[in-house]
């Protein structure tokens, strides 16, 4: 039995703007075990970033976690609900047990402080190391993430680093206290393709080296295939489908997942295949549809889909699909139930 790291239970997060309540995350449940790399994929605006910020309890005003629990399982089995912590208590976990890196490395480092300054600030925040020890630790971290000359470069300022190097420095800082969980929100989206691959490799390597779990957020299924063990497909602030990477890629059941597959280039041999975009646009989260958020765009939508969001139907121990087609009375369209795609 694998040890759990995180349980997200019924989390709803909204932004109370002057236009009304933007329901960015509308009730999501999932678990993450030790050693897993969970990919969260979905079109932009589907609530991936808000989900990750909710886990970190970092949702900014006017946003708020309305409902649900974020249960973090500590190494010793102790369970804390992040949503119930004061911000001071939460700060002891952030950067220490759970760390996060963001999409844009160019703007995620403070331009007026050196890399060393920003790294040792975090190290000293969560450990008892003195300054010299913290600097040594920072250097070895930079080495671990592949900065060529940590000794010479640690005192550099962010503007002296390239985008890829900055993301490495940010990763080094994030893992500086050996977190149990690292959340990476589109960590490679802003980078060149070659650098992208290097950063993903690095994350995989670090996952093994310090035995942490990772939540990797992306809109790119290719990235997910590259590194994840498990996948969650999000749409309109809800989970459409989740499963192992094999299940999501070879036995997808949700029409949205299938649509995502058809809308991106597949392997080289299939390059002649036509790409099929998903028609329509994502739901308005100010006034989300009552039923399944994907129903207005879904080629298989039934009456019930418009009225009521589907529960998560269990396809296997690991695969769960929120789609009425999986109800026993529903029709079984060939392209979904023929098995592999």
């Amino acid at each position: 039995m694998k040890k759990k790291v995180l349980e997200v239970k019924g989390v709803k997060t909204s932004f109370f703007t002057h236009l009304g309540e933007v329901q960015a995350v509308r009730g999501i449940d999932f678990e993450l075990n030790e050693g897993e790399i969970l990919g969260i994929v979905g079109e932009s605006g589907s609530g991936k970033s808000v989900t990750s910020l909710s886990i970190m309890n970092l949702v900014d005003h006017p946003g708020e976690i309305k409902e649900g629990q974020i249960l973090f399982h500590e190494e010793d089995g102790n369970i804390v609900d992040f949503t119930s912590l004061s911000s001071r208590k939460m700060n002891e976990y952030r950067g220490n047990d759970v760390a996060m890196i963001f999409q844009d490395p160019m703007t995620s480092l403070n331009p007026v402080y050196s890399i060393q300054n920003q790294m040792i600030e975090v190290i000293q925040r969560h450990t008892d190391l003195n300054k010299q020890e913290a600097i040594e630790r920072a250097k070895s971290l930079l080495e671990q993430v592949g900065i060529p000359d940590p000794e010479g470069q640690i005192t550099d300022y962010p503007h002296q680093f390239s985008g890829g190097m900055r993301q490495r420095a940010l990763i080094a800082t994030a893992i500086s206290c050996n977190p149990r969980l690292l959340i990476a929100d589109e960590p490679t989206t802003a980078l060149d393709v070659t650098i992208q691959a290097q950063i993903l490799e690095l994350l995989k390597k670090l996952q093994k080296e310090i035995n942490m779990s990772i939540i990797l957020i992306t809109h790119d299924l290719g990235v997910i295939a590259e590194v994840s063990t498990h996948v969650i497909v999000m749409y309109g602030g809800m989970i459409m489908e989740k499963g192992t990477v094999h299940e999501i890629f070879y036995e997808p059941k949700h029409p949205y997942t299938i649509g995502l597959h058809q809308s991106i280039p597949q392997s080289a041999k299939k390059q002649k295949e036509r790409l099929v975009p998903i028609e329509g646009s994502p739901p308005d989260l100010l006034d989300p549809p009552t039923g399944c958020p994907f129903s207005p765009r879904c080629p298989h939508a039934m009456e019930v889909c418009l009225e009521k969001a589907a529960p998560l139907f269990e396809v296997s121990d690991s695969q769960k699909v929120s789609c009425w087609l999986l109800h026993e009375d529903a029709p079984k369209p060939k392209e979904i139930f023929k098995g592999a795609k």
Binding site: R94, G95, A99, S108, L109, N110, E121, V122
Partner: peptide, 8 residues
């Protein structure tokens, strides 16, 4: 946001 995510 990075600083906050690092528990500063």
């Amino acid at each position: 946001r990075t600083a906050r995510a690092n528990g500063i």
